[in-house]
């Protein structure tokens, strides 16, 4: 039978995240969108978090820096296509990271996201990647998947890896 204990455990972890994120929302200062394209499901605060995380994940891909808004837009569209339960998880994660508590104490990033160095962000990602706390590992992998999917979805990323793109059939 569906193991209720496991659901409970997960529910509890999710609940803690949610509570932290809820507390976080209230504290987060309003951040105006910087003239970039409107996002469907992510908000301006989520954008600030992504703007710090995307360059750290995509470091080494060359073109990434100039296409930050496009990559964030692509993440946003991908999240909008996820089923509601996954959208909710992703939004909780960004809300948590966007909060002072989440950034400072869970992610261990001292500077505000907009001022955090790439090295500091990379160190946080590496800590969560190998965290002993399953929720942090899961969160790292969610960020990894969202950002790399968004990047390699873009035909602009293909020349650097020698992918010719799909063939012409018609």
């Amino acid at each position: 039978m569906p193991s209720r204990r496991q659901f409970l455990k997960f529910g509890l972890g999710g609940g803690l995240l949610l509570a932290a994120a809820g507390a976080a929302r209230a504290q987060r200062p309003f951040v105006a969108a910087s003239g970039a394209e409107a996002l469907a499901v992510l908000d301006a605060g989520d954008r600030v978090v992504l703007a710090a995380i995307v360059p750290a994940l995509l470091a080494g891909t060359g073109e990434a820096a100039g296409q930050l808004d496009a990559v964030i837009g692509s993440v946003d569209r991908a999240v909008a296509g996820l089923p509601p339960h996954l959208q909710a998880e992703v939004k909780q994660l960004f809300a948590l990271l966007g909060s002072w508590v989440g950034r400072r104490w869970l992610a261990g990033v001292r500077a505000p996201w907009s001022e955090a160095s790439r090295a500091e962000v990379a160190a946080f990602l590496e800590r969560w990647r190998f965290s002993g706390w399953r929720l942090q590992q899961q969160a790292y992998q969610a960020l990894h998947e969202l950002v790399f999917a968004a990047w390699y979805a873009r035909p602009g990323s293909w020349p650097a890896i020698g992918y010719p793109g799909p063939p012409e059939v018609r």
Binding site: L58, G60, I161, G162
Partner: peptide
């Protein structure tokens, strides 16, 4: 992985 290591593998 991520960053330059990941990018190098993708190349």
């Amino acid at each position: 992985g991520f960053g330059p290591q990941h990018a190098a593998l993708m190349e």
